[in-house]
Design a protein around this nucleic acid. Structure first.
Lengths: 186, 186
DNA sequence: GGGACATTGTACCGATCGGTACAGAGAGTC
DNA sequence: GACTCTCTGTACCGATCGGTACAATGTCCC
């Protein structure tokens, strides 16, 4: 029997990796059953809403991780340099130094975007707001902070795409390093 | 009857839009027949290799467009500022100011990456080399030029992802504008 | 042990997938 | 008009798609 909270998290993690590897439409139930080790019966018992519910919960789970490990620390950091460094470290960890793809960005590019539009938008919007609030505290104007936060998100996404396209994780590493400097520039 | 060269280009363009809108795996033959106006008979007559050949040729077609409109001008430009401005203008035009997604980047993120790995890698590699060669002429060191070209490609890709995720073409516009300045900075 | 309820494996559903076979329409040549 | 040869619409293929039905099993409390 499932220990409700615990095991569902594990299932969501496996689901996330399947969606990451094959996209929303490419993640067939066969792949999903293999990745989770759960038969269709269990799967539809856990997620009566089918694939769409699975993806929704996976996105929510990702959002939760970022809220805890990225957004909240950004909001609460007192020292801008430390705050930025912590975010960069968290991002590097989450994306396995460029080996892992961003599921949210992937969904955004595909046909499934419309279905998950608000989740996708929220993910980036809240990140931008949290980062901009930190940058404001470092002395930037509101518009400067917003613009620079936007640049940060876009750099991370672009680095993930390019790193994967060229199969070169160094791209991601360099991008994060440059980004740190750019965010903290006067 | 097809006027060989001409009509095939049009078919490839339609195919490209279907792949862009639904991804490689999501682009079903039904969608493809609708978008191209061609029945399965014609489709498999034109592309005996099926979907894979279609995608391969679409990628080659895109590569051709960039070679002609972006890479070659970059290589041949004498004035760096003009060369960069021309590239940015071309990119803005090609991606419809952020409304259009990059098919190459999209393929790179999905499961189809392995199938088209060399096409995907070439697309970015040749772009980076062409841009870096221009930047070298503007006085940058080889490594600086390479690094800055990498930053340019990654910025464009990231801006496309973020613009689509947040449904805000302004992100793309701002990113291109900032990028121009960053590329030409001393 | 027995009843209640959560969980699961399996068989099955209609729809759609990518792809093939092929007869015949269409156009060019003589 | 008859002969090519290119092109295309249609019927069809087995496989797989996402999803459902349900009986069987497990787990718990009593």
């Amino acid at each position: 029997m499932l220990k409700k909270g615990v095991e569902r998290k594990e299932v969501l993690r496996a689901l996330g990796e399947v969606f990451r590897a094959h996209g929303y439409e490419g993640a067939s139930l066969t792949l999903i059953t293999e990745a989770t080790g759960l038969g269709k019966g269990s799967l539809y018992h856990l997620f009566p809403g089918g694939k769409e519910q699975m993806a929704t919960e996976v996105l929510a789970d990702i959002d939760g991780w970022f809220e805890l490990n990225i957004y909240a620390p950004l909001r609460e950091a007192s020292d801008p340099a430390r705050g930025v460094a912590a975010m960069i470290a968290g991002v590097d960890q989450y994306f396995h130094s460029g080996d892992r793809v961003c599921l949210v960005g992937m969904v955004a590019l595909g046909a499934a975007r419309d279905t998950f539009a608000t989740s996708v938008d929220d993910y980036f919007a809240r990140w931008q707001v949290a980062l901009a609030s930190l940058l404001r505290r470092s002395g930037l104007s509101r518009s400067q902070a917003q613009r620079r936060a936007e640049d940060a998100l876009l750099t991370i996404q672009g680095a993930l795409v390019l790193a994967r396209a060229r199969n070169d994780a160094g791209i991601f590493r360099r991008a994060l390093s440059d980004l740190t400097a750019r965010l903290l520039a006067p």
